[in-house]
């Protein structure tokens, strides 16, 4: 027997906002009957672009119904921009807690919301979630590798059992568990490499070609177009260690505020897009 808390039971027994909004601005349908849960979310916007009305219809267990009910509460009054930031974690937080095996119910809520927002924006819902792209890994529940990777990343998942709890993959015949483990290993490895990347050798230690290519790219894309608006320009002269030497041209050369331009525009952009170690010198 599940140990549902009072909040979950309240939203299950007295669900808020059941039904379908008439002439909705956005509709999101996720899940399917073979999986044992499905959710149809509809919403309407007011004149200020805020969600004024949201309703749900859910096929599923108590936690699926409760998750849907709090989802409608969470999004009413929000702009789409605000609503699009809501995740399954917000749904669980609002409910207090869900049994581990039921976390996929909160994920379904988030997916329905994303699908409904995508529908409003005119994107096909399935493509928006990306859940139908990729290769089907779990045949019982039709879960693709793309979705499994997304769930792993979004919820910082470490074990195959958690993958099953969040998206059901592997929860039936269990023949794909090895496959899921492989995907999980790849994702964990990727994350480890990415984390390591954050402390990668400083800009000064980069190979010269990489330095030049990266810096030139950012100068062409981010910096020159800005300078050209004021009738100026700039060229890359040299890179020594972490110091990038440039020559300001056109109206920029000799401009009294060229020092500010150098620091506020050129150095900031290079630090943002290439490496925080960079210093810039005008020659």
């Amino acid at each position: 027997m599940w140990d549902y808390n009072d909040k979950v039971m309240d939203h299950f027994l007295n669900p808020r906002n059941v039904g379908e909004v008439k002439n909705p601005d956005g509709t999101g349908e996720v899940g399917n009957v073979s999986c044992g849960d499905a959710l149809k979310l509809t919403f309407k916007l007011d004149g200020n672009g805020r969600i004024s009305e949201a309703k749900f219809k859910t096929f599923g267990c108590a936690s699926a119904i409760a998750s849907s009910s709090v989802l409608t509460e969470l999004i009413i009054g929000k702009t789409l921009e605000e609503a699009s930031k809501i995740t399954n974690k917000d749904i669980v937080a609002r409910l207090g807690e869900l049994p581990e095996e039921k976390l996929h119910c909160s994920v379904m809520g988030m997916e329905a919301l994303q699908a409904a927002i995508a529908d409003y924006r005119g994107v096909k819902a399935a493509d928006a979630a990306g859940d139908h792209e990729g290769r089907v890994v779990c045949k019982c529940f039709g879960v693709t590798d793309v979705k499994i990777r997304r769930v792993i990343r979004e919820n910082n998942i470490k074990t195959v059992a958690e993958v099953t709890n969040y998206c059901k993959a592997g929860g039936a015949c269990s023949s794909c568990l090895d496959d899921i483990q492989k995907i999980l290993d790849e994702e964990l490895h990727r994350k480890k490499t990415a984390d390591a990347g954050k402390s990668e050798p400083g800009f000064a230690a980069w190979p010269v070609v990489r330095k030049v290519v990266k810096v030139q790219e950012v100068i062409d894309r981010e910096i020159v177009p800005m300078l050209e608006k004021d009738g100026g320009s700039m060229e890359l002269v040299d890179i020594v260690g972490a110091t990038v030497r440039v020559r300001l041209q056109g109206r920029c050369s000799g401009c009294p505020s060229s020092g500010v331009t150098l620091k506020n525009l050129v150095e900031d952009k290079l630090r943002e897009f290439v490496s925080p170690d960079i210093m810039v010198e005008n020659v």
Binding site: W2, M9, F12, L13, V33, F59, G60, C61, A62
Partner: peptide, 14 residues
């Protein structure tokens, strides 16, 4: 048809 068993059972449990 079209509804889920756990939800029925928990309501019966009430």
């Amino acid at each position: 048809e079209y509804i889920e068993g756990e939800a029925i059972l928990l309501r019966l449990d009430q």
